[in-house]
Amino acid sequence: MFHEVWILFKKDLLQEFRSKAAINAIFLFSIVTLTAVSYSIGSHAISNFILAALLWIVIVFSALSAFSHIFLKEEEAQTADTLKLIAQPTPIFLSKWLFNTLLLTLLLMVIVPLFIAVFNFQVKNIPLLLLSIFLGDIGLASGGTIVAALIAKASRRGALFSVLSFPILLPVMVVGISAAQIAFTQEGSPLFPSEITALFAYDVVLFTTSLMLFDFIWND
């Protein structure tokens, strides 16, 4: 099982980093989002509370642009059926989820430091910020991956991915913003406020439900 996941994950990794077309577009899109947000604020001094919301807007928009590709590419290249033949649904979902998590983590490693540099402010509680973003990352990837699998099977996709995933990902955003507000404003605040517990609980719920429901999407 773990071996299967690893092989499938490596296949996606090789495929994506060989052509780089999709990855480049995804990275560029998050830079564009960051630019749009940063430019519209200009050099006005804004409070840390608003900064927390802006950070999560950039994160969620980057995530929305990044996730749908992983399943769409299988449908577009018509390789989904081959994938069905060689692997069980669970390893497929896990490998796709792993890839999306890695992709978003890489994105965030670029976006978050850039965001802090662009807006020129100090984070008071860095461990809390990192922890909340990491948990948010996992939650976004779980919800995003299952919705990506859903819309890959739909015939008219359009803006469907954002519409379907937004209500499911919003709790992550709401709680993430409030955790970031604490991290931006309070020095020496506890590492595990109730926001972290809520994020963790939501991650577990979302991940398990997605894993259980994926079989029904994949096998028709």
Partner: peptide
Amino acid sequence: SLRSAVENDQDRARLSAVYSLLAFAT
């Protein structure tokens, strides 16, 4: 909007059922 985006009846039923359950968990 998911229902209106899927043309095949069986696919529509399956995908919207999955979405319904996913949303229900949240």
